[in-house]
């Protein structure tokens, strides 16, 4: 039995289900388990679910479901999700090029960590990640699972815009960014996958809760996969974990 979450009101149309106040894989797993449970069986009046590292925000229509009914429903779902076996999640093997040509900041990250670049790649590609949340900007996915030995601070000043599909580390966290933008993170790799394709049924390939590993590919393979992705093919491999 785990501790019950706190229910906090964010106005009369949003409820925060808070499992903790820190970044912690166990807390994130509980958030994602409730997110999955409510997504699979949403009560009438539930509008949107927004998972974060610490909490799940439930946007709802209070003229359809009242707060007390929603709290009861979310509380039961959270208890069941915490006590039951971890549900199977979608897992991706995501091609990632760590070549210096595309991994623009890998060298400085290696230097900051006092590790050879190859060792940073081995550790980054050897870890199991999970999409903990999106935030900050459209398509900016925060990942849980970065090895502690790869924790580097963010930049003091932002770097110029990174390209689409940037695989990044910073502030002790890992991220994968869909759209180019200036960033305080460090680009350690790049995926050729089209993470956003508006013509697909699921426009964003990675959903909160998905598991993820990176598979190193060389520049030539990256370019070939990029061409295939441009035709609409999903080049990452999906499996259930």
């Amino acid at each position: 039995m785990t501790e019950a979450p706190r229910f906090l009101d964010a106005g009369e149309a949003a409820l925060v289900v808070e499992f903790g106040e820190i970044v912690d894989p166990a807390i994130s797993d509980r958030v994602l388990a409730l997110d999955a449970a409510l997504s699979a069986d949403p009560p009438d009046g539930l509008l949107e679910l927004v998972p974060t590292y610490r909490s799940l925000m439930i946007h709802y229509d209070p003229l359809v479901i009242d707060r007390e009914a929603l709290v009861a429903r979310a509380g039961e779902a959270a208890a069941r999700a915490s006590d039951g076996a971890r549900p199977s999640v979608r897992a991706w093997l995501m091609p990632c090029c760590y070549d210096a040509e595309l991994a623009e900041d890998l060298g400085e990250v290696a230097e900051a960590l006092g590790l050879p670049a190859e060792e940073v790649v081995t550790r980054h590609a050897g870890a199991d990640y999970r999409v903990a949340m999106y935030g900050f900007a459209p398509g900016f996915a925060y990942l849980g699972g970065l090895p502690e030995t790869l924790a580097v601070p963010r930049r003091r000043t932002p770097r110029p815009p990174h390209p689409t599909g940037a695989v990044m580390v910073g502030g002790g966290l890992a991220a994968i960014a869909t759209f180019p933008m200036p960033t305080g993170w460090h680009v350690v790799g790049r995926t050729p996958e089209r993470l956003y394709a508006p013509e697909r049924a699921e426009a964003f390939l990675l959903a909160p809760g998905d598991a993820l590993r990176f598979e190193p590919v060389d520049v030539a393979t990256f370019r070939a996969l990029e061409r295939r992705a441009a035709t609409g093919e999903i080049v990452a491999q999906a499996a259930s974990a």
């Binding site: 106005g11 927004v50 974060t52 590292y53 935030g135």
Partner: peptide, 29 residues
């Protein structure tokens, strides 16, 4: 705080103590 969800109309108090009401173009967290 560790980021959490942001509803339209959320009144956040940043470090300088001057309130900001997050409106239609707010970030989701």
């Amino acid at each position: 705080i560790v980021s959490d969800g942001v509803a339209m109309g959320a009144i956040q108090i940043p470090g300088d103590g001057r309130p900001i009401v997050l409106m239609a173009d707010r970030q989701p967290t």
